[in-house]
Design a protein around this nucleic acid. Structure first.
Lengths: 212, 212
DNA sequence: AGTATAGCGGTACACTTGTTCTATGTCAAA
DNA sequence: TTTGACATAGAACAAGTGTACCGCTATACT
C-alpha cells in the first residue's frame, strides 16, 4: 500500500496512465497521448502538470526528448511478488502436517499482504469445511500462516486441541496454566483449555477470500 | 516458434545497447542514438537492422512512433503487481461513492487475487464497523469490489438499501419483483427487498483480512 | 560477364513531438 | 473590488525522429 498525497486528480491520473502505458508498450507515452487519456485538451497543460510531478519528485524528465520521462518512486513494481508454498488444506479433524510441500503449488501474494513477517516462514492453507466459521473464516478461504509453535497473547493462531482432536483458529491468550481461546466473532463465548492440551501450529498472517 | 538465425555483430550490439539504455533511462533510444552508439553512420542502416531484429523475434516495433520499440523478453514471465485504487471506507450508513478515489491510495495485489476481473474496474474499500459480520466480514477487512450496477444470482454484492439507508454486503438473488439478500452466514435468515429499493454498488471479488 | 542480393552510407522529406507564447478563467487573500 | 498565484486552452514554432529513396560495394551464383 502506497500513499500519494498533495497531487491533483489530474496528476494522479497521469501517473496511473503512465504506469499502465509503460507496462503495455514498454516505452513512455507522449504528451499528446497523456492529454488524450486524461482529457486534457492542451499539450501545454500536460507539460505543466508533468513539470509539477517532476517538482514533486514523482517523475524524471529529459528536455527536448520525445517520451523522455520515467517514473521514479512510482515505478511499476516488477517481480516483487512473493511466493509462499501452498501446503494443502486445513481441516478441523487433523493437525496441520509438517508441511510436506510436495505439490509445489505456490501462492503469489503482494509483499504488503505479508506485512513484516519473514516470507520464508509463511505458508498458505486452504480452509475446508465450515468449522471455523466462529473465527469468521469460511470454506474455501486461504489462510496465510507463519509457522510457529508458540504464540503471543492476542495472536490469531491455528491450534491443535489434543483432547478434542481438532484444529481450530482462535485468538490466543495465555492465562497461567490454561489457555483462553477467543473466537473472532464477538458474539460467541471463549473456550478454555489446558495449556498442555493445546499445540500451536501457526500464527495467522492474513485471510484471503475469493468470490467465485 | 520463432526462427532464430544468427545475428550479426551489429545486431547483437544493438540489442545490448538497447538493454543498457532502457535500464539507464527508462525509455528506448532513438534510431540516431543507436547509430551513434554502434558506429552506424546512417539512420537507414539502423532502421534496416532493427527490422531484421523484429523479423528474428528479438524486438517489437510500432511504426512511425518515436522510440516505439521494446525488447522481447524470452522465458521471463513479466508478472507484475496490479494496483487497485483504495477508494476509502465502506460504512453501513452511506452508499459507496462512484468516484471516491480522492485519496490516491492504492493497494498492491497479486494478479491471481483479481482472478479474471478487469483490473481497471476493481477498487478496494476498508470495512468500518462490525455491521457486516453476518457476511463474515469484520472491521478492518479489505474488500475488493468490481464496479457494477447489476449482479447475477449468487454474486456477493455491495448494495445500497434505499429504505433502510444502509450499505450492506449480501449474496444476491433476483426473484421477480423483489430481491433476496442472503447472508453469508448460513445460520442467519435472508432478507427480502423490493428490486427498486436495492442499488447494486459492486460485486465482491475478494476479501483480505490482515492480522496485526 | 551478367545478375541477384545483402549490407551500407547519405540525404531529403514528412510526420511526430516538446516548447513557448498569449489569452482566459478561478479562487483566495489583501 | 483588486490583486496575484494557479490552472487551463489554443495555437504557432522549433526541434526531434522515423521513413523513403538513391547510389555504391562486395559476394555468390548462373
Amino acid at each position: 500500500m502506497t500513499k500519494r498525497k498533495g497531487l491533483s486528480a489530474r496528476q494522479q491520473h497521469i501517473l496511473r496512465y503512465m504506469d499502465q502505458y509503460m507496462g503495455e508498450h514498454g516505452y513512455p507515452p507522449t504528451i499528446r497521448e497523456i492529454g488524450a487519456a486524461t482529457h486534457i485538451n492542451s499539450t501545454s497543460v500536460v507539460n505543466y502538470n508533468l513539470n509539477k510531478l517532476v517538482q514533486a519528485g514523482y517523475l524524471e524528465r529529459r528536455d527536448r526528448v520525445s517520451r523522455g520521462m520515467r517514473l521514479v518512486k512510482w515505478g511499476r513494481a516488477a517481480d516483487n511478488l512473493l511466493r509462499v508454498p501452498l501446503a494443502g488444506r486445513i481441516v478441523a479433524s487433523a493437525p496441520v502436517e509438517a508441511y510436506a510441500d510436495v505439490s509445489g503449488d505456490v501462492l503469489e501474494v503482494a509483499p504488503a499482504t505479508l506485512g513484516n513477517h519473514p516470507p520464508g516462514e509463511v505458508f498458505a492453507l486452504t480452509v475446508q469445511g465450515d468449522s471455523m466459521i466462529d473465527a469468521m473464516i469460511a470454506d474455501g478461504d486461504l489462510v496465510l500462516l507463519r509457522r510457529a509453535d508458540t504464540a503471543q497473547n492476542g495472536d490469531l493462531v491455528a491450534v491443535w486441541l489434543a483432547d478434542e482432536e481438532a484444529t481450530t483458529l482462535k485468538r490466543f491468550y495465555h492465562e497461567g496454566q490454561r489457555v483462553r481461546l477467543q473466537p473472532e466473532n464477538p458474539t460467541m463465548d471463549p473456550i478454555y483449555v489446558d495449556a498442555a492440551q493445546c499445540r500451536v501450529q501457526g500464527v495467522v498472517v492474513a485471510v484471503i477470500r475469493h468470490s467465485h
